[in-house]
Write a protein that binds this DNA or RNA. Sequence first.
DNA 1: CCGCGACTGACACGACTGTTTCAGTGAGGC
DNA 2: GCCTCACTGAAACAGTCGTGTCAGTCGCGG
Lengths: 212, 212
Amino acid sequence: MTAEDATPSARKTELLEAAYRYVLEHGLADLSLRPLAAAVGSSPRVLLYLFGSKHGLVRALLARARADELDLLDRVHDHGAEGPGGLVVVAGQVWSWLAAEEHRALLTLWVEGYARSLVDPDGPWAGFARATVQDWLAVLAAAQPPTERHTAAAQAQRTAVLAVLRGALLDLLATGDLERTTAAVHQQLAALPSHGGHRPGTGHGQGGTTSP
Amino acid sequence: MTAEDATPSARKTELLEAAYRYVLEHGLADLSLRPLAAAVGSSPRVLLYLFGSKHGLVRALLARARADELDLLDRVHDHGAEGPGGLVVVAGQVWSWLAAEEHRALLTLWVEGYARSLVDPDGPWAGFARATVQDWLAVLAAAQPPTERHTAAAQAQRTAVLAVLRGALLDLLATGDLERTTAAVHQQLAALPSHGGHRPGTGHGQGGTTSP
DNA sequence: CCGCGACTGACACGACTGTTTCAGTGAGGC
DNA sequence: GCCTCACTGAAACAGTCGTGTCAGTCGCGG
């Protein structure tokens, strides 16, 4: 059995967590079983036993990374104000999470998985890119007024917000220029065609504190 | 000699071109000399002789891809109108290029190189991400009024435009949804805080013809 | 003709890949 | 005591990787 149950064994989750930390540092692209096993205090034999194959291991790691991401999305979803301007507030919260120093490794991993999933749709990362687009769009949609979130304009709007966030993220990951990218995001969010004419202040996230 | 002269031999450019086409199809991540050599009608021995090492080959391929990109940027730079609204016009032109079906492979390769350059700053792709950010920002800056392009607001603005373009590109590459992403880009460009109050029409690029 | 430089083929080297085979551990339930 | 089951170690498998070695084939200028 490949031990892919709904209730993974304690050892399996323990090793997955260690492997996840390892991958956050070293990336997925040239992941190799022997160095990984050595780093997490195990052996290739055990990893293969627990995850069935390297394919399975990578899928588990990707799922683990996505769990971190979905965790943020859920938290935003709870705190997220609906109604006009809600989209801007949520986007601002998301950006302050994306911009946080301690999430760089995760987000770099995210970009890596995204790229691989574009190039090689048969690998373990198959569908990863498309899945995350939908995840994020869904959260942004939840921040829009329920009465109009189904319109084409609202769809274009959340697509645009997602684009700004991810484009700025790419920039930030490459240059590390937090100030410039944050200014760009805030400027673009402030310029959003807000249907209710309700302009939220741009200063709320400048300092970078995530929680209220 | 590694044949890294300013005037590469005919055979070298010929093989580079063939390898470039191969890489556009198969990606850079798991590029291997033997399959590549077989595909381009050569041998690993020759590739190594001409490019010195795999490292050199990949660098040459990345430079080749960047040349394609800079080609676009130069063309846009020539046609680009300066003054207020020029940024929007240029961004619209760039998007219609990015969105074109025949550039998908190149842009996927671009994302791949970008991701690798983030993860592993010592590989052949070192500095690739940072370099492309600067390339694009420079072109967008050239489309801004010379008197104000040095201001922080102008910098934030072109950073924002770049973010929209690249974020929408990520979305497009993953979902293939040309309509939604294009609508988002046009909407976001139209919403730009245009300093002259000069709103350019959004309809000019809707059909998607690049050249005038 | 001769030699020189660009290019190429065949092959082997050592290192590394994911995966398998065989042989065990040790703890918990009967 | 014993049996089962989750887990583990050592070693080997067949394969691919980038690279190096030795040799050879062209065309072209002297």
